[in-house]
Design a protein around this nucleic acid. Sequence first.
DNA 1: CTAGCAACTCAAGCCGACTTGAGGTCAAGC
DNA 2: GCTTGACCTCAAGTCGGCTTGAGTTGCTAG
Lengths: 145, 145
Amino acid sequence: MKLLDIGEVSEASGLPASALRYYEEQGLIAPAGRRGLRRQYEPEVLMQLTLISMGKAAGFTLDEIGSIFGNRGRPVLPREELHQKADALERQMRELGALAKAVRHVANCQAESQFDCQAFQRLMRVNIKTMQRRARKNGGRKAPV
Amino acid sequence: MKLLDIGEVSEASGLPASALRYYEEQGLIAPAGRRGLRRQYEPEVLMQLTLISMGKAAGFTLDEIGSIFGNRGRPVLPREELHQKADALERQMRELGALAKAVRHVANCQAESQFDCQAFQRLMRVNIKTMQRRARKNGGRKAPV
DNA sequence: CTAGCAACTCAAGCCGACTTGAGGTCAAGC
DNA sequence: GCTTGACCTCAAGTCGGCTTGAGTTGCTAG
């Protein structure tokens, strides 16, 4: 199987080479070897990068991503924790849906201010609650994800 | 209607007072007035903060959030752009779902490495494509959201 | 053989989103 | 009338995630 130069990986993934080197420094990816100075990647790395991008989009830090999809696809966390992460993701997904709804509503609503609109208020109500639940749990620091 | 001290807003929202001042500096919220030096907030601000939190969870910058739910609930962007934002959110929601599935799979899968697992590979395949589409469009910089 | 060019390293810089700390203000309760 | 505690301002610091720049190395084509 043909190995890829960093430039090719960059091209294929859309990530700048500097980011790839940075991911390596953080232990998220690794080249199969070198040819001279140059890193040579297995095509598999593209899948890893997809995972990383998805994880980032979901608000994980690189560190967290590393612990979910650890060294070359072997997860570092125990099953139970992984399921918790998945639960969190699904919750977050629902929140995203709520936000999409809210934005959609804002686009169509005639009210002077959203805060005058009954429908909008209903959309928000439930989320104020989940937000407060979350806040109570972690003292308002950093998204638990 | 009773006005709230920053401490009360902080308590109710779970956000530290320093963050509230920062949001004010960025033009996202504003107190109804002051009593002496102290900011006095209308309860309405809690709804705005919910919106902000949701927006952040969805990966928007504070700046972007400001342009969606502009000055006191009157959106700054035209309808069309708001719908585009909503579309993007729904896309992102689906990606999040895919990630949840992937994590769930990793938790259960017996394969040595995820990259040896057929089911996992299928899960990823589609996302590599969307990732590449996105990359081609923006040169790999900053999430388009 | 040598010129190019892509890649390399390492240190420093940058941006967003806050936090922290030092030093100041003020209304409320004793 | 004084202390206390919540709040204030402003400057500086922090952290994550990269980017930028200067100076170096080494495969490849002419």
